[in-house]
């Protein structure tokens, strides 16, 4: 399997069809695939089923999900939490749920992880403690309660495995062979294992082979799992390469996106009118 080296985020996003089930991580580290998400908006992709691993509740990840929902790209969101963290609620997400135009499949973080791990192993389902008696359980037809076959009187929840069609993320670096270094952000490794396709923007491409360095290799997604990548510094905006987030940019977005009209204006300025050279 050869990793496709593409020119930019737009070329990667072009590989994502409407109707795809998309996996994204929570955005705690500099992994938010904002540039690819904005290209999906620009292309007018529709009917995406987003699966958040397990939330999009950091300022940049919440903003990315909010933009995709507001722009009409999303059919459903499976999530354990969507917000802009300390900055507040995700405005277009909240509006879409209230209007009944977005299906939310409510989950809880460890259930998402467990189901994704089952998917990464190619197994049909997995078991998890907790959950029983919650209204989450009551509304999930892909979760079930069964009797523990190994213990008497022990009901336990089973969760259907999660296998996204496409995973999108940003990472600090890759080599020319397509190996991607993710640091301690191991959710990305599990997600790449579970997904059919993995599309990655990276801050920089380095010489050499990341797999040959024993200190780096344990934090590498081998190229076997990577479908395509592009060198795209800053593609995790408003996250920044140093790990901080441009909170003023998030606040400006949230202020604009309080109304549908303000959101359209924001899209016009930041997505549709963005000069090609700035990408």
């Amino acid at each position: 399997m050869t990793v496709q080296h593409l020119a930019d985020a737009a070329s990667l996003a072009a590989l994502v069809p409407s109707g795809a089930r998309i996996g994204v991580t929570k955005g705690e580290q500099t992994d938010v695939p904002m540039a690819m998400a904005l290209e999906l908006v620009r292309r007018g992709v529709t009917d995406l089923d987003l699966v958040t691993i397990p939330t999009c509740a950091f300022p940049a990840s919440g903003m990315m999900l909010d933009i995709l929902v507001g722009a009409g790209c999303v059919r459903s969101v499976e999530t354990s939490g969507v917000s802009m963290s300390e900055l507040g609620a995700a405005p277009r997400f909240s509006a879409a749920v209230k209007a009944g135009t977005l299906k939310v499949v409510d989950a809880t973080c460890p259930a998402v992880y467990a189901a994704l791990q089952a998917g990464a192993k190619g197994q049909p389902f997995t078991a998890l403690r907790g959950l029983i008696g919650s209204d989450l359980m009551a509304h999930r037809d892909d979760w079930a309660v069964v009797a523990n076959p190994f213990e008497a009187d022990d009901p336990v929840a089973l969760l259907k495995a999660i296998n996204p069609d496409v995973t999108l993320f940003h990472a600090p670096m890759a080599d020319r062979h397509g190996n991607v270094w993710i640091g301690r952000n191991r959710d990305l490794l599990t997600l790449a294992h579970a997904s059919d396709m993995t599309l990655v923007t990276v801050e920089r491409i380095v010489d050499g082979d990341l797999m040959e360095d024993e200190t780096l290799a344990p934090a590498v997604i081998p190229n076997f799992y990577v479908t395509a990548l592009a060198e795209a510094p800053g593609a995790c905006w408003p996250q920044q390469a140093d790990g901080t987030t441009d909170l003023d940019a998030v606040r400006a977005y949230m202020s604009a996106a309080r109304t549908e009209e303000g959101f359209r204006d924001w899209l016009a300025a930041h997505v549709f009118a963005r000069p090609e050279a700035a990408e």
Binding site: S80, K98, V104, D106, C109, P110, S134
Partner: peptide, 14 residues
Amino acid sequence: RWSGSFGSAYLYFV
């Protein structure tokens, strides 16, 4: 609509 259930439906049990 609030943000969602996060880890509650598991951590509350264990």
